[in-house]
Design a binder for these strands. Structure first.
Length: 586
RNA sequence: GCGUUUGUAGCUCAGCUGGAUAGAGCAUCGGCCUUCUAAGCCGAGGGUCGCAGGUUCGAGUCCUGCCAAGCGCACCA
């Protein structure tokens, strides 16, 4: 419909040109919008406001001229000039009724499109360090990331979902040491647990499993373990030196192979847990990409070699630096430490090089907002590798601040005092969790009130949308109980009997679904889909309260049932896309 | 201090990339179940869109400067 109006307006512009009112060279952008207010018709264009200046006319006069020159079209019942010079189009409801038939024909396919044209897009999200279970902060990234990926797939992109596993680095060593120390406790050793180690209950669980499997195989007397280890912070020492020394001690006492075993046991157990957690949350990946793999297969060396060859590396103070400040970053960054170890950033350069080599048309990274300062250096690295940095899109997700009523819930992985995603899912349910997370714009700070979300009452907006779906199912059941059957053909033939305000409004709303979906996908804003569904549900509830569907007049009855079923289909399509259930009864 | 994100109703948030009288939910107040599910509907009150300038036919939206909050500014990940 938009395209049709656009061509009509273009016709008018051409006519203006031949009349000499507009310069031939002028090619105005035709802007057509949905109106906000029904009184302004269905669509509006600000064309004459845009052209007023080049045409040297006042906008209202120009608008009259445009309307006069506008080619006729049967679908357009009325054209009005309003306000400062808007041209409002009123569309024949009959032309819009086609959407009901279309929804019925296309079913689950309705709304899907091919604007993505099969372009390869990678969406990397969550990628939390495997040092513990996912918490509620990760939940938002998970819900948002998977919604973005699913939306892109719905409009025809070839989407690859990926989780980057940081299975290397100091944090992982701290985890391994934490597990080993808890294991020693399981064996009966007694000592003070380091302040900087991971203290979560899950660490004990992993240690207990290890103890069950291996008995005392990895046991060493506590006197040996703590011999000459620098003091921990509470004892007046340094917590980092304390834990680092313990990591080294673990490696020497256990030996490389055994240390790896403990390390791997922890990693595996946590990764399995994360994968299961996300799977249950409706979040699935095509690829779990290992950071260690990048080290083992020489990718990091290769990436650094390429940067060096292009003259972007230099050595200072014993470390190797990447001259990122020449490429937009605020300062240069170390890629190889003076101790010879690569930094996390070096891994990330290699990772992005790998992504580029895999031939994606677009690379989307979804990060927590606390990583935003990291973007310029990754961009710089991609540029230095000779890639088109426009291919990279970084979407930031603000953290969700958790409340219980008025009280903020403090969280820290290290101290172990946090609410896990799993706890949240169990408390508020899958549907409410996904809905709540995606309801807000991603870069908006979010207050997640557990009390509110856990309250099973009407305060939960997800029920509102689901209830609309269930209500329609209920109407259909009612129809059956009354011994009536739908006559879809008759309904389709009788669509012009839908003349009530709510009916016209619903039909118009249904026609918007595909364009809304496309916009939500291309702009990475799944909350638009949520808003749409809430509006559609509201219009349906309003309709339901104002009018009876199962009426004696067969034509009206079937037309209304066809409309209701179209609404049901679109609600289901939207909810399914968000992986939220569509209950038939509530 | 520098960078970045945010500031809209009592609270939580939308606001269709610059359009018409700024919206919704919750909360408050008043109505609607003999009728397809009241987890619903109808109505009312509630606003200096953080503040001040600027850009233009037109600004919650764009530009500048302040104010406030979150986050970031490692040879951590």
């Amino acid at each position: 419909m938009k395209q049709k109006l656009e061509s009509l307006l273009l016709g008018a512009v051409a006519a203006l040109k031949t009349q000499g009112l507009l310069e031939q060279a002028l090619n105005p952008i035709i802007n057509i919008e949905r109106t906000r207010d029904q009184q302004h018709g269905d669509f509006a264009s600000n064309l004459s406001l845009m052209l007023a200046k080049p045409a040297k006319m006042n906008p209202r006069q120009l608008a009259e001229k445009i309307v006069e020159l506008l080619p006729a079209d049967p679908a357009v019942t009325k054209v009005e000039i309003a306000g400062p010079g808007f041209i409002n189009f009123f569309i024949d409801p009959k032309a819009q009724y086609q959407i009901i038939r279309k929804i019925h024909e296309q079913g689950k396919q309705f709304g899907l499109s091919q604007v993505g044209a099969g372009k390869k897009v990678q969406v990397e999200f969550v990628s939390a360090n495997p040092t513990g279970p996912l918490h509620v902060g990760h939940g938002r990234g998970a819900a948002y990331g998977s919604a973005v990926a699913d939306l892109l797939a719905a409009v025809g992109f070839d989407v690859q979902r990926e989780y980057y596993v940081n299975d290397a680095g100091r944090q992982m060593d701290i985890l391994a040491a934490s597990i080993w120390l808890r294991y020693l406790e399981e064996c009966g050793e007694v000592f003070t647990f380091p302040s900087n180690a991971y203290r979560g209950e899950y660490v004990r669980d992993i240690a207990a499993n290890l103890h069950r499997q291996a008995g005392n195989e990895y046991r060493h007397p506590v006197t040996l373990v703590f011999e000459d280890i620098p003091a921990d912070e509470p004892e007046g020492g340094n917590k980092d030196e304390h834990i680092d020394a313990l990591i080294e001690r673990a490696k020497t006492l256990l030996g490389a192979k055994e240390y790896q075993f403990v390390f791997q046991a922890g990693l595996n157990e946590i990764l399995v847990d994360i994968r299961q957690d996300l799977g249950e949350f409706g979040v699935n990946y095509q690829e779990w990409f290992s950071e260690r793999q990048l080290m083992d297969d020489g990718s990091i060396d290769e990436a650094l070699k390429r940067l060096d060859a292009a003259g972007h590396l230099y050595v200072k103070d014993g470390a190797t630096w990447f001259a990122s400040s020449k490429l937009g970053d605020e300062k240069d960054r170390v890629v190889v430490r003076d101790n010879g170890q690569g930094t996390y950033f070096a891994s990330d350069i290699a990772y992005h090089m790998n992504k580029l080599d895999r031939g994606f048309d677009q690379i989307i990274n979804i990060w927590g907002a606390d990583h935003h300062g990291y973007i310029p250096r990754v961009r710089a690295a991609m540029q230095a590798l000779g890639a088109d940095t426009d291919k990279l899109k970084v979407l930031l997700v603000q953290f969700a601040v958790l409340y219980r009523g008025d009280e903020q819930v403090q969280m820290s992985t290290r101290s172990g005092s946090f609410v896990t995603l799993r706890q949240l899912r169990n408390e508020v349910g899958q549907d409410a969790a996904r809905f709540f997370y995606v309801m807000r714009k991603s870069e908006q700070h979010m207050d997640f009130d557990l009390k509110l979300a856990t309250s099973k009452s009407n305060e939960n907006p997800v029920f509102y949308v689901q209830y609309a779906h269930a209500r329609i199912c209920s109407v259909l059941r009612q129809l059956d109980e009354k011994g009536l059957a739908r006559n879809i053909t008759l309904g389709d033939e009788s669509l012009e009997r839908l003349i009530e305000l709510q009916e016209i409004s619903l039909v118009s709303h249904l026609t918007r679904y595909p364009e809304m979906l496309e916009k939500a996908a291309v702009q990475y804003e799944p909350h638009l889909l949520i808003n749409y569904l809430r509006e559609l549900a509201a219009e349906f509830h309003s309709y339901y309260n104002a009018h009876q569907f199962i009426v004696d007049d067969e034509a009206v009855r079937n037309a209304r049932l066809n409309l209701s079923c179209a609404v049901k289909q679109v609600l289901a399509n939207g909810l399914n896309l968000l992986r939220i259930n569509t209950p038939e009864a509530m």
